[in-house]
Design a protein around this nucleic acid. Structure first.
Lengths: 155, 155
DNA sequence: CCTTGAACCTATAGCCGCTGTAGGTTCTAT
DNA sequence: ATAGAACCTACAGCGGCTATAGGTTCAAGG
């Protein structure tokens, strides 16, 4: 192997991924199996670095691993149309926007709840009261039918 | 048992929880073990209904189960101060606001990426390019140090 | 009284995307 | 030669459910 190959630890350092995470990506087939040294240790090259950076950045933007897999397939095949990648990105944008809307509704309710609470005993705690009775909320917005508020993972 | 007791299915219907979820809450000690019929089926009363509604609503507002446990303990003991409940609510608000900030950054980047993409081949796809190179992003905002974008669960 | 079928029961596995642990091996620097 | 850092595999656990398998109980209709 060329002398500018990396160990898994160096790859982790350069991309900001954890070592375990890289092995995990290999396990689920997102990263290709790299060559090994005689002592069975992984050695990575520039291509691996690029690919992992791509994955990492996509994760930071909240793309799920499945979508990243699709995007990598697209990136690997220059004959394919840009449209597919565009569609995936739009889908992700849409997700992010739903989550934003939901979180904004949550913030409104939480603020309202907290503002109304003026200390004292639990017996007249607005926080507890409001939680006990959804009817006291302004909107139904936070009664979520199928979660739209989760977002990106923490790489 | 009084004739206005509910089966688990009826409780689920009235709160919008799933039957499995109710059993799960019992298993983790969030809901008390209800009495059983001779045939070993659970029977719930008004108190259970209230408690489950409280849990459900808190989940809708994104509180994690641990926080809900604390809130329930507080609600159960009227001698305790409102302050503790207030603190939990503020903590949750803070969480929601961090997630909002992160999602807003994600939205910005995704939009920018999509707008710049004008169709054509993958070879000059902006989506793919930007994903491959974080340097092309406006901000570092989405390079998250410890995830702040997750939100409520999907009840 | 008997049958059907819906609703219940327990136990267990799976989802996502990692993260951590245990227990071992290999590499590098002194 | 040896210490200790970095590597290896395998597997368990996080949160918060959800789904499945394989069985039991209940209520209504004949």
């Amino acid at each position: 192997m060329a002398e500018r190959d990396f160990t898994i630890g160096q790859l982790a350092g350069r991309t900001g991924c954890k070592v375990q995470t890289i092995r995990y990506y290999e396990q689920i087939g997102l990263m290709p199996k790299p060559p090994r040294t005689e002592g069975n240790q992984r050695r990575y090259g520039a291509r691996h670095l690029e690919r992992l950076a791509f994955i990492r950045h996509s994760r930071e933007l909240g793309f799920p691993l499945d979508a990243i897999r699709e995007l990598l397939d697209l990136a690997d095949d220059p004959t394919r149309s840009c449209e597919a990648a565009d569609r995936i990105a739009r889908r992700q944008l849409h997700q992010v926007e739903s989550r934003l809307a939901r979180l904004q509704a949550l913030r409104r309710e939480l603020k309202r709840m907290i503002v109304q609470c003026h200390g004292g005993g639990i017996a007249d705690c607005r926080v507890i009261e409001v939680l006990a009775d959804h009817g006291q909320c302004l909107h139904e917005d936070h009664a979520v039918p199928g979660d739209a508020s989760r977002a990106a993972a923490s790489p």
